[in-house]
Design a protein around this nucleic acid. Structure first.
Lengths: 334, 334
DNA sequence: CTCAGTTAATAAAACGTTTTAGTTAAACCT
DNA sequence: AGGTTTAACTAAAACGTTTTATTAACTGAG
């Protein structure tokens, strides 16, 4: 069975294609189509189950009611949770989301942007990486709404939603110090994105502000695409070779690897050795003892993103860009 | 800057649109375009950065190089991991994936299928739910490849990839019994999909086969969309009101809730009380003690799915459907 | 020298919409 | 009665491709 087109409907209703189009798009009133015709056409549409071809529509109008979501890795629970929340909220406003993972690769990210552009995606939500500034600027020049989240790109003038990573890791370290910890390690990753840098800066500043010496050897930089086994090995080495009484992990997957390392070392978390993770994870709460963590308010972040996007989509003119910085919460668990 | 069209390229190269199109689509040789013209046009395309409009292309050809992936919930690690693997493999073959979550809702699933159909998605990978048989049959009648995974729909004749849930939960219960357990509970969910039913059947058969009495009261059915707090409460009640020395959880998120319940009850997992989860989760391995689980081989499942899809996409005729059942592995951890 | 075949290219239709610019007939003035 | 508005509807262009059918020029065989 061939799929129906607007032409078939027009034929059946004995009116022109134009008329049907006006009715479909709710312009019947303004275009002075009589009620009788409206009723008739709507009835035929309903009965036949006709659905306009979105491709043709997009081709003609240049927009698609689709929002593109580009994240680092959809299998990371932070991103998949955000994706799910955004999907939900967008869906209610009639927008669909399509998403894809960049794996922090510049080339793949560029291709994705190009793919989405090609598909006439209406707006972009991007967790960016350095090196795609130009591509994003192109989108903006093209008047497409772009919201950056999780990480910001300093040279791009567009709205951003993210957590206050500096202050969050500052507080985490502060809480270690208040607990009497002296040798606080940071396990972080080497990707060059603002949010990771901030986490490091917060750590460093907090240590110095509280009169402790900053020790380079207590900061472990894990390459992003490294095998987990290697990561675990490096963390074990750090813990064995250094006097350390507290560790802050800069991402949830690093914390997971860290917990595995501790397990292999049979090193217990207790009064004399503490751990704080980042981006909550089911495993943190369940762990014995429960793992304290810096929690980003996913719901709020998703909400802020979708608000900004919808506002920009609805607006005729370019809205002023906003930097929404949401405080991350330090969750102390015992 | 207006985006370029094939017309602009044709103009610049001083040839017809048709010629450019042939060259773009690699039909230059067969259409006897001279090498000189091919070179010239390709140079112009490269220099100008022209990218064909995929919408127009899809509108004309009826296909899109996009595969639609429809899952229950992208924020569940089982699905997001599979999605990520499929995305990777498809990407290498020049296909893009777009995915969306159904939340096990028939209406939303139907809408998604309709959305994808509208977008001329070339093939579908669906983790289905009862009630959408007709929509899937429509796709098949339309000659679109459809692969079901995770759950099968008995009345649909199409390929399926999934794990052997019956045998997996049979073995899990068997291992409990060999350990001397007598009162084995099952915490499962009420969604009416084959894979969940199989898990229950395997549990029941194993109990009976091994000469134990099947007790209805030891099976807890959790409504799918229920708040987690309620789920935890129900699991606590089950554990408090019954003599139970082992629990099999039918999904990973139920196991997580179960572990939380145990934590609240301060009930320890040890020789006299065992637990097995389903679909691995980071938290299982990290838990103290580590949680045994039934592990679905994600990599193999993803590989099988993508193989079937690509084979069907490449084939001119309809391939015979295949039911790929991959054994799930019982991982005993201590 | 002519006809058939080949080579190199193109014009135009088609995909399914939206939207601009009309057209026609009736209703409304003065 | 003649002109102007308005109501109701529509023809056709446009979006950017692919593809079918066609043309025009050349080649070589008989």
């Amino acid at each position: 069975m061939k799929t129906l087109s607007i032409k078939d409907i027009a034929l059946k209703a004995n009116v022109s294609i134009t008329t049907v189009s006006f009715i479909i798009n709710g312009k019947a009133k303004e275009k002075a189509i009589s009620d009788a015709v409206i009723k008739k056409v709507q009835k035929i549409i309903k009965e036949s189950g006709y659905k306009p071809n979105q491709l043709a529509r997009s081709l003609r109008t240049g927009n698609s009611n689709i929002i593109g979501l580009i994240v680092e890795d959809i299998s990371n629970s932070f991103f998949s949770s955000i994706a799910r929340l955004i999907e939900d909220k967008a869906y209610k406003k009639g927008y669909k989301i399509i998403y894809s993972s960049t794996e922090n690769k510049i080339e793949k990210t560029k291709e994705l942007i190009s793919l989405f552009k090609n598909r006439k995606v209406d707006a972009y939500i991007i967790s960016p990486i350095k090196g795609i500034e130009e591509d994003i600027q192109d989108l903006l020049n093209d008047n497409k709404p772009v919201i950056l989240f999780d990480r910001n790109l300093p040279n791009i003038n567009t709205s951003y939603v993210g957590a206050n990573h500096f202050s969050a890791s500052y507080q985490a370290v502060e809480s270690f110090i208040k607990d009497g910890k002296q040798n606080i390690a940071l396990v972080t990753t080497d990707i060059d994105v603002q949010q990771i840098v901030e986490r490091f800066e917060g750590y460093k500043k907090s240590i110095i502000d509280h009169g402790l010496p900053y020790q380079d050897g207590l900061v472990l930089n894990i390459p992003f695409s490294q095998e987990e086994a290697t990561t675990i090995k490096q963390i074990k080495e750090l813990l064995q070779n250094r006097t350390i009484d507290a560790v802050l992990f800069a991402t949830n997957y690093l914390a997971i690897s860290g917990l595995k390392a501790l397990k292999e070392l049979e090193k217990k978390i207790n009064e004399s050795f503490s751990v704080i993770g980042y981006d909550d994870h089911e495993a943190f709460e369940l762990h014995s003892p429960s793992i304290s963590t810096i929690q980003q308010p996913l719901e709020e972040i998703a909400e802020a993103i979708i608000q900004l996007i919808l506002a920009q989509l609805a607006a005729k003119t370019k809205l002023p860009e906003q930097q929404v910085v949401i405080p991350a919460k330090l969750i102390i668990r015992n």
